[in-house]
C-alpha cells in the first residue's frame, strides 16, 4: 500500500487505467449496459455515480473509526442510498430530461457495486484525502468507460455523434442500440482495452484473469479477504 499519510495522486490514474472498474473488474455492468445507448446518457450516469461515489466514500472515510465493524455494510448502504436520493432530486429538479432518460438506473446507484466495493476495500481503511482521490479516479474510470461505449453505440447503432445526426447515407446497425449491442460493444472494448493496458503497463504484471466470477453479487456479499472478486484496492 502506498504511504497512507501522503496524498497519492496516482490513485486517480489507477482507477482510470490499471483498475478500471468496468473493464478490468467487471463491476457495475447493469448501468454500463443499460444507459450507454448515447454518449450523453453515459456521461450523465457517470457523473451522477461519481458524485455519489465521492460523497459516500468521503463520509465513510471520515467515519471509519466510528462505524462498528459488525454493522458496517448496512451503514455503507444507508449512506450510499441517502446520497443517491439527493442526486435523484437534483436531477429531477435541474435536468429532468436526463432523469427521464436514465430512469430507474439513477435509483439503482444506491446498490452500485463499485461504490460498495470501494467503501469496503478502500475508504473504510484510508484517510479522507486519499479516499477522495481513489473515489474520483474510480468514478472517472467508470464515466470514461460509459462514454466510450456510448460513443460507439451511438455512432454505429443510432447514426449520431454526440447527439448530432449523421447523414442519412450513413449505414445504421440498429441492433447495437438495442440491449444485445451493449454486450457486443462491451466485449470488444474490453479486448482492446486489455491489449492497450498490457502494452503500456507491461512493467507492472497484472493478474491476467479478469474477475468473471465476480460481479456485483460477490463484491459485497463476501466480506472475507479470500473473495476472488473483490479487488484489493489500496493494497497493491
Amino acid at each position: 500500500m502506498a504511504d497512507s499519510k501522503r496524498a497519492d495522486f496516482s490513485l486517480i490514474k489507477k482507477g482510470i487505467l490499471e483498475e478500471n472498474p468496468v473493464y478490468t473488474s467487471a463491476l457495475a455492468l447493469c448501468p454500463t449496459l443499460a444507459v450507454t445507448v448515447t454518449a450523453v446518457n453515459g456521461l450523465g450516469m457517470g457523473i451522477a455515480t461519481t458524485a455519489v461515489l465521492t460523497a459516500s466514500c468521503l463520509l465513510v472515510s471520515l467515519l471509519r473509526n466510528v462505524i462498528p465493524n459488525a454493522v458496517r455494510i448496512p451503514i455503507f448502504i444507508l449512506i450510499c442510498a441517502s446520497f443517491t436520493t439527493v442526486v435523484q432530486f437534483l436531477l429531477q429538479a435541474y435536468l429532468p430530461a436526463l432523469n427521464d432518460a436514465l430512469g430507474m438506473f439513477i435509483a439503482l446507484i444506491a446498490i452500485n457495486c463499485i461504490i460498495l466495493a470501494r467503501m469496503e476495500s478502500f475508504s473504510s481503511k484510508n484517510p479522507a484525502l486519499n479516499t477522495t482521490f481513489d473515489a474520483i479516479g474510480m468514478g472517472l474510470g467508470f464515466t470514461l468507460a460509459l462514454i466510450i461505449i456510448g460513443i460507439i453505440r451511438e455512432f454505429i447503432g443510432g447514426g449520431a455523434f454526440l447527439g448530432f445526426a449523421l447523414p442519412e447515407a450513413f449505414p445504421r446497425t440498429t441492433v447495437l442500440a438495442l440491449p444485445p449491442g451493449g454486450f457486443f460493444v462491451l466485449a470488444f472494448v474490453i479486448v482492446i482495452f486489455t491489449k492497450f493496458r498490457d502494452k503500456f503497463f507491461s512493467g507492472k504484471p497484472k493478474p491476467a484473469k479478469v474477475a468473471v466470477g465476480g460481479g456485483c453479487a460477490s463484491a459485497k456479499a463476501c466480506p472475507s479477504a479470500d473473495c476472488p472478486a473483490k479487488d484489493e484496492g489500496g493494497s497493491s
Binding site: L178, P180, G181, F184, A187, I190, V191, K209, V212
Partner: peptide, 17 residues
C-alpha cells in the same frame, strides 16, 4: 484475446438477440 469475459459477453449478446 476473447477468452474469459469478452466471449461471455458476446454469448450473452447473442442470447439477448
Amino acid at each position: 484475446a476473447l477468452k474469459g469475459l469478452p466471449i461471455t459477453m458476446i454469448v450473452a449478446g447473442l442470447m439477448s438477440i
